[in-house]
Computed example of a mutant assay.
Amino acid sequence: MTQDVPALPPIKPNRTIRGASAILLPFLEDGAIDWESFDAHLERTAAAGLTPAVNMDTGYVNLITSKQREAVLTRTQDVLGGGAFVAGAFVKDEPGAAFDLDGYALEAERITARGGQPVVFQSYGLTAGDAAEILPRYEAFGERAGEFIGFELTPDLAAFGKVYSLETFRGLLGLKRCVGSKHSSFHREPEWERIRLRDELRPDFRLMTGNDFAIDMVMWGSDYLLGLSTFAPDLFAQRDKMWAEGDPAFFELNDELQYLGRFAFRAPGAGYKHSAAQFLKLRGWLRTDLTHPNSPERPDSDVAVLRECAERLGVLS
């Protein structure tokens, strides 16, 4: 007897895709943050119609200092002048640590005080245990911080990450102050499961794909918060507009962007941040292609492949 396979959620044509783009934090030769390039990338991302996302994995949130994270928030507020943004609420801990509610509440306060919305980064203390243990921690966070976006992060990108059970995701849907969640398992099936459940229980809940290997998940009803979109926020906005208008050119542009994503996010996955710096330097948007010193680097030979990608995308002649 064959096992019943759950039906996929239906493709949702002509819908408006809500895109958020994780901003790369660039560096200079002396190890300082390249604030000039950061500011410009914030501006162009917002101008493209995407919501900037700062202090995410793309911004080395787990590698920079608390002081640097706060500086990122302050500059984001200043550059956007009241415009919308989201930001990672990150608390560093160790395996076996207790949930640090006060630490998370402080991070959230720093974000909301500047007009942003928190994206709750995972930690060992937050994700330990099952749904009955995890969900009250999110509920307590919401009571302290207000509305927030959850985050499921594959351990391939961060050791403290965890992809929750569908039961736990169902519980997140039941938390009023949890208004969305970024899903970064890098697999389609668990995201399809979440789309079906979201559509059934809470259609207004913002499920945001973080699957840089399957950026077409937007066709089934995910929005997105991607690292790949920092390579080309202008082209992602163009792609999204094509989908809303029913333009078949969506598929070819999506294919080219997906090829770039498959190359940039190959193992080790965290090396994509250096790929982003190399690509943005090719576009003339960064002064260097340097990465955080504790983040994996890509070989110089990657630049030739990235140049071909840029040419095929029409952003480099």
Rank of each mutant, 00 (worst) to 15 (best):
M1I: 07
M1S: 14
L8W: 10
P13C: 03
R15F: 08
A20D: 07
L24R: 03
L24H: 13
L25V: 08
E29D: 15
E36G: 11
S37F: 11
F38G: 09
H41W: 09
T45E: 09
T51Q: 07
Y60C: 10
I64A: 11
S66T: 14
G88V: 13
A89W: 13
A89M: 11
F90N: 09
V91A: 12
E94W: 15
D100T: 10
D100M: 11
R114E: 15
Q117G: 01
V119T: 12
Q122W: 03
S123Y: 03
L126G: 01
F141G: 00
G142Y: 02
E147T: 15
E152V: 02
K162E: 03
T168P: 03
L173S: 02
L173M: 01
R177Y: 05
P190D: 09
P190T: 06
I195M: 10
E200W: 05
R202T: 01
D204H: 10
L207V: 09
M208I: 02
N211R: 02
M219P: 00
S229P: 03
E252G: 10
Y259D: 12
Y259C: 07
G261E: 02
A270I: 13
Y272S: 01
K273P: 08
A276S: 08
L282V: 12
L286D: 10
R287T: 14
T288P: 06
T291Q: 07
N294M: 10
E297Q: 15
C309M: 14
